[in-house]
Design a protein around this nucleic acid. Structure first.
Lengths: 195, 195
DNA sequence: GCAAATTAATGATTTATTCAAG
DNA sequence: CTTGAATAAATCATTAATTTGC
C-alpha cells in the first residue's frame, strides 16, 4: 500500500523528529488544543491525525520510561558486580557508557505529576501568532476537557451505520475486525454547558 | 447543588437499572454507535452523556471482574480449609452458598475475548426500528472506530481557546486545574476516508 | 433529628500491558 | 523487532452512605 488506505499511521522522518523535539522540550501529555495544533503543523509533512499525536506521546512516554528503568537496572547490576556499593555518596547520576543522545540523563525524566516546566513555544518555527489573547481565565470554562467538547459536536446519529442489535437473524453479532472498537462514545444531546 | 453544575455524573436508579440489564445481556464494550443509542435512551431518565456510558461499562466490567476474583479466592480458601483437595474430579462449578443474583455463575463471566453472544435487542422497550439496513459490510468503512469518526467533525480550531505556548511571559505554563486533560486529541483536517 | 466526621462506592483519568501491522 | 493502536489495570477524586456526638 502506498499511503492511501494504510491501516496504521506511518510517521515521516520530519514528523518523528518534530515530535521528539516536542518531547525533549518537555511535552508529555499534550492537551486537546496542543494536539490540535501539533497535528496541524505536522500535517505539512504528511498525513496525520490527532489520535496519532496522542498515541505517539502516550507510547513514547511509556517506552522512554521503561527504557529508563532498564538502564537504571543495568546500572545497578553493573555497579554491584564491579565495585560493589562504592557509591560516591549522593545518588548516582548517569550511566557511564550511555551515549544515547535521546534519553534524559539518569533519573531526570519528569513524570507528569512533577509539575514539569514545558517552557516552550512548541515550534521553533514560524509561530503563526494565532491564539494570543488567551488569559488563564480557566475559572469557569475549562472545557479543555475533551468529552465535554466532543459532545457538543456529535449528534445522536440515529441512522448512520450499525444497529444496536445487529442481529443478522441468527442471533449472532458480527465481530467485524478483532474486537470492539475502543473508547468510542461521546455524543450527548445539546445540553451545552447549561447553567 | 440540584443537578446543574455537578462535576460528576450521578446516575438515576432507572439509568443504573437499565445499564445493568444491558450488562447482564452481555454488553461489555459497546461500540460507538451502541453507546450513542444507549445514551439516547437513558437520557429519558436524566442528564447523561456518552462518556458516562462508556465509563460505566469500563468500570462495571473491571469491578465485576475483581469481585469475581475475590469470590473465587474465597471459594478456594474455604474449599481447602474444610475438606482439603477433595475436588470431585472435574473443575468445580459453583459456589454453594452464592445466591447473588447479580454476578454470573462461577467462572462464567465472559471476558471480551471470548466471542460473547450479545444476542440482544438492547432495550426490551419499543425498538424504534431505526437502523435496519445494515449489512456487515464493514470491509472498508469500519468507521466504527471513534477517532476517525471524531476527526471528521472537529476543525483545527485555530482560534478557540488556549494557545499552544501559553507562556504568560514568565516562561511558565499555567497548570490550570490539576493536570492535563485526558485523552484529548482528535482533530484532523478534512481528509475523510480518501482511499 | 441533624450535621460534622469517616467510610464505602463509584465516576473519571492515567499508566501498564497486550495485540498486531510493517 | 519496532511501534502504532487498543484494552485492562491501577489510581485519583468526588459523591453517597454511614457513623458519631450533641
Amino acid at each position: 500500500m502506498e499511503d492511501g488506505g494504510s491501516s496504521r499511521w506511518n510517521p515521516t522522518k520530519e514528523q518523528i523528529s518534530m515530535l521528539e523535539n516536542l518531547y525533549k522540550q518537555g511535552i508529555r501529555t499534550p492537551s486537546a488544543e496542543e494536539i490540535q495544533q501539533i497535528t496541524a503543523r505536522l500535517r505539512a509533512y504528511g498525513h496525520i491525525e490527532g489520535k496519532n499525536v496522542f498515541y505517539w506521546f502516550q507510547n513514547h512516554k511509556a517506552r522512554q520510561r521503561q527504557k529508563q528503568k532498564q538502564h537504571t537496572l543495568a546500572y545497578f547490576n553493573r555497579s554491584f558486580l564491579h565495585h560493589h556499593h562504592h557509591q560516591p555518596a549522593g545518588m548516582m547520576r548517569r550511566i557511564p557508557d550511555n551515549n544515547h543522545s535521546e534519553e534524559e540523563t539518569m533519573f531526570d525524566y519528569d513524570d507528569d505529576d512533577k509539575q514539569q516546566d514545558r517552557t516552550l513555544d512548541l515550534f521553533p518555527l514560524h509561530p503563526t501568532g494565532i491564539l494570543e489573547g488567551k488569559k488563564e481565565t480557566q475559572d469557569n470554562n475549562n472545557n479543555n476537557n475533551m468529552m465535554t467538547m466532543m459532545c457538543s459536536f456529535m449528534a445522536p446519529s440515529s441512522s448512520s451505520s450499525s444497529s444496536l442489535s445487529t442481529d443478522d437473524g441468527h442471533g449472532y453479532r458480527h465481530q467485524q475486525q478483532q474486537q470492539l472498537p475502543f473508547f468510542d462514545f461521546f455524543v450527548t444531546s445539546g445540553h451545552g454547558q447549561g447553567s
